Amino acid sequence: MRVLHILDHGLPLHSGYTFRTRAIVKAQQALGWEVACATSQRHAAEGPAEEVVDGIRFFRTPGRPAGPPLLRERGEIKALAARMDAVAEAFDPDILHAHSPVLTALAALGVARRRGLPLVYEIRAFWEDAAVGNGTGREGSLRYRATRALEGWAVRRADAVAVICEGLRADLVRRGTDPDKILVSPNGVDLDLFGDPPPPDPAFAATLGLNGAEVIGFIGSFYDYEGLDDLVAAMPALVAARPRARLLLVGGGPMEQALRAQAAASLVADRILFVGRVPHQEVERYYALTDILAYPRKAMRLTELVTPLKPLEAMAQGKLVAASSVGGHRELIEDGVTGTLFAPGDPAAIANALSGLLADRAGWDERRANARAFVEAERNWSSNISRYAPVYHRLTGKPA
């Protein structure tokens, strides 16, 4: 089986998007398949037109997005389609597998039809909802409606559609998509990367002033929808209940400056630590320092429909997880069994949930074991990848 994945961006860039792609491709390579990837002009990393990163062959689309809205996106689609045509000529794939946003599917559709290839379109989030979550769009706007219409157009024309969670599947079915056309391929964890966490390093903890602390952590991107402002707002009440509590924030993003200003004005400013972005190979050192990973996402379409990757990585690391009770989290976390859920957008509820969890150390080992077992059984990439094989086989007629 020869598979060409069409991507917004890829390695060596680091994001939840690139880590999921890496997991899919590595698992397919382990099956003996020939796999390659083509990235769009949105891959904002310098490099050659063709390169191998982490054992994965990447073809890059030249140029960068430019021009006014609509014309810019049209140019991106045209450039990616031209690159895919050239790659398909050389690589000779059996199937095309495009990954959201919808621009990749629009570019792939023409190539698929011209070359008589089946197309799988994988949706990791609806582009219009992601724009609202990132603060670059507004729900119900003309652009939002147009993007939603394009998404539906691409879904109808793809030969099969993959989604990462039941929330996205249900939304597509409500729009009229045939349920039999949809494959759910959940977010998963590569246990080779996250399955053997290091112990905490007391010397490293001391450099951060965290020795003896009860550490609440967030490691990821600082977008508004992540609800980190609510987590910062919860800290005074949490410290009042648990004086040794500290908040460790690792990462960066659009909300970083606002969050730093909010933390500096907090009554417990000295209990909130920002360390900025860290190299990917350093992330596990910070995971090791945390007692609880907190994910206080706000309630909105994006978070209700889409399951995140970070809580799964934390579970694989043997960490306690506390998260807001939005749909994407409820699909991953069973309250009181594999994690703790609290009301979204409510700093008091966050403080109560975290203080209660910190006070219940007797139950930590069982909670962590339950979470790890869930990841191993239901969110392990080595088993998740098997979901693609029957679809590929049905569309190509070749053994998978």
Rank of each mutant, 00 (worst) to 15 (best):
residue 278 V to T: 05
residue 396 T to Y: 12
residue 237 A to N: 03
residue 11 L to F: 11
residue 220 G to K: 07
residue 399 P to S: 04
residue 354 L to E: 10
residue 17 Y to W: 15
residue 58 F to R: 00
residue 268 V to M: 01
residue 143 R to A: 12
residue 172 L to R: 07
residue 82 A to E: 10
residue 3 V to N: 06
residue 121 Y to D: 03
residue 375 V to G: 02
residue 239 V to C: 13
residue 393 H to S: 04
residue 251 G to I: 09
residue 394 R to S: 05
residue 167 G to Y: 03
residue 314 A to D: 10
residue 135 G to W: 15
residue 164 I to N: 12
residue 43 H to D: 15
residue 362 A to W: 13
residue 291 D to I: 14
residue 267 L to R: 12
residue 52 V to P: 08
residue 286 Y to G: 00
residue 182 I to H: 11
residue 256 E to V: 05
residue 220 G to C: 07
residue 59 F to G: 03
residue 332 L to D: 06
residue 391 V to F: 05
residue 45 A to I: 10
residue 212 G to H: 03
residue 16 G to W: 11
residue 39 T to H: 05
residue 358 L to S: 01
residue 319 K to W: 15
residue 384 N to G: 00
residue 216 I to G: 02
residue 400 A to I: 07
residue 337 V to W: 01
residue 149 A to M: 11
residue 395 L to F: 00
residue 83 R to H: 04
residue 119 L to K: 03
residue 87 V to S: 02
residue 143 R to S: 10
residue 202 P to W: 10
residue 350 I to G: 11
residue 386 S to M: 09
residue 71 L to Y: 05
residue 49 A to R: 06
residue 268 V to L: 05
residue 269 A to D: 12
residue 370 N to D: 14
residue 107 A to F: 08
residue 67 G to T: 14
residue 119 L to W: 07
residue 8 D to P: 12
residue 134 N to K: 02
residue 286 Y to D: 04
residue 287 Y to G: 00
residue 183 L to E: 15
residue 133 G to A: 14
residue 148 R to L: 10
residue 366 E to I: 01
residue 385 I to H: 08
residue 358 L to R: 03
residue 327 G to Q: 04
residue 202 P to A: 08
residue 235 M to C: 07
residue 3 V to Q: 10
residue 382 S to R: 13
residue 322 A to L: 15
residue 66 A to H: 09
residue 307 T to S: 15
residue 104 T to S: 15
residue 9 H to C: 12
residue 355 S to G: 14
residue 360 D to W: 09
residue 72 R to V: 10
residue 347 P to C: 15
residue 2 R to L: 12
residue 50 E to T: 04
residue 184 V to A: 06
residue 268 V to D: 07
residue 367 R to C: 11
residue 149 A to Q: 07
residue 53 V to F: 02
residue 357 L to T: 10
residue 309 L to S: 01
residue 195 G to S: 06
residue 6 I to H: 07
residue 243 P to A: 07
residue 89 E to M: 13
residue 313 E to R: 01
residue 314 A to W: 15
residue 29 Q to N: 13
residue 129 D to A: 05
residue 7 L to H: 04
residue 399 P to W: 11
residue 303 T to E: 14
residue 245 A to T: 00
residue 24 I to H: 00
residue 186 P to S: 06
residue 43 H to Q: 13
residue 148 R to N: 07
residue 220 G to M: 15
residue 386 S to W: 13
residue 203 A to I: 04
residue 186 P to F: 01
residue 224 D to N: 03
residue 221 S to Y: 14
residue 72 R to F: 12
residue 257 Q to G: 02
residue 167 G to R: 01
residue 92 D to F: 01
residue 253 G to I: 00
residue 94 D to Y: 12
residue 128 E to N: 05
residue 395 L to E: 00
residue 243 P to L: 09
residue 30 A to I: 04
residue 174 R to M: 10
residue 312 L to H: 08
residue 246 R to M: 14
residue 337 V to S: 02
